[in-house]
């Protein structure tokens, strides 16, 4: 509410009144400008016009996508001094991915958590992890009884079992439904992906997810240069920006090329099983047929593609 400017004063208006107005206006301008001082530290290097004009992943022509990939790769190289192998990997025909996790086997070592961080270029500080392992007392699958921060000298503990939770890649995903800008969607192979360049960061999906699978970049993600995984794809593990959502994507840059996800490969006990649900001979299909699998929070109706099971002959004495 600085005083009004009074350029076109009619003659007769006093010089004093003009001075008063100018002084007030100057004060107001000074206060507004200096209030924006923190913006001087704004790192604009990754805010380019091309990035601003980039279209939604599904709308980009192949040429536009190539240009976007080249631009992103260059930005990554500039920041992390690693030339990434950035590409876009499309879903494979006749494939719908599913995951099964054997709770009788899991020992709670958290190797999957950290292998995921390393594979997917997750921020080390502040820490972002897609997988959360719960230490649960035997005799209950009430997650409120789970301990997220267990820190024993050794695992497993005889009185507990361990339940890792990550994105369930639901067939009826509430996160996709709520996104106001369609920045997240379900792909043909069942993987729910995020266009990090489209997300506006409203975090509605994070509120909608019943499995607490989504993570938000509250700050600029920090990854040591030497820890960057250069094997990247657009929809999966390329470095994210501040202010966008991310989550598990079944390592689609690996799995869409036939490889197993990083969390599975590192699992020392083989508790994690992954494959094509549409192939009746795949490990995961056979497990679904022969084991008593269950999904978390079935009543929410999300139809997860992530299944849990216990061995039928499991009495817990293994540990």
């Amino acid at each position: 509410m600085s005083a009004d400017t009074q350029q076109q004063q009619k003659p007769g208006v006093s010089r004093r009144s003009f001075f008063r107005g100018a002084l007030g206006a100057a004060g107001g301008m000074a206060a507004v400008t200096t209030a924006l001082k923190p913006l001087l530290e704004f790192d604009t290097s990754e805010y380019t016009l091309e990035g601003f004009l980039q279209r939604h992943y599904k709308e980009m022509t192949p040429e536009e996508l190539d240009a976007a990939l080249a631009r992103i790769a260059e930005a990554v190289e500039k920041r992390y001094e690693v030339r990434p192998e950035l590409r876009d990997v499309k879903p494979m025909d006749g494939v719908e991915f599913g995951y099964a996790l054997n709770l009788s086997r899991c020992i709670g070592c958290r190797k999957c958590v950290h292998a995921c961080v390393a594979e997917n270029n997750q921020s080390r500080s502040p820490e972002i992890q897609y997988i959360r392992v719960l230490e649960m007392p035997r005799g209950s699958i009430d997650m409120e009884k789970g301990d997220h921060a267990y820190d024993r000298p050794t695992v497993p503990d005889a009185d507990h079992f361990y339940m890792p939770v990550q994105c369930h890649q639901c067939a009826n995903p509430p996160c996709v439904k709520v996104c106001p800008v369609e920045a997240t969607w379900s792909e043909d192979d069942g993987i729910v992906v995020i266009d990090y360049d489209w997300c506006i960061g409203c975090r509605y999906c994070e509120a909608a997810c019943p499995y607490w699978a989504r993570r938000f970049n509250f700050a600029e993600p920090q990854i040591p240069k030497e820890d960057i995984n250069p094997d990247m794809s657009y929809l999966s593990n390329r470095p994210r920006q501040k202010g966008v959502m991310e989550k598990c994507h079944f390592c689609l840059h690996r799995t869409r090329e036939g490889k197993l996800p990083a969390c599975l490969e590192v699992c020392p006990v083989g508790a994690r099983k992954f494959g094509n649900l549409l192939d009746p001979k795949s490990e995961v299909s056979q497990i679904l047929r022969t084991k008593h699998v269950f999904v978390l929070k079935e009543e929410v109706g999300t139809l997860p593609r992530f299944f849990y099971y216990f061995d039928d002959d499991y009495h817990g004495e293994r540990k």
């Binding site: 939604h56 439904k177 975090r203 509605y204």
Partner: peptide, 27 residues
């Protein structure tokens, strides 16, 4: 208040380009 809550307010134009209406209640 909604604007300050956004992680990427610079992308608000995306609302006009791919408006998830009528699926998302936010739209």
């Amino acid at each position: 208040f909604v604007t300050v809550d956004l992680g990427r307010p610079d992308r608000f134009l995306h609302l006009f380009q791919r408006f998830n209406f009528p699926i998302s209640m936010l739209t």
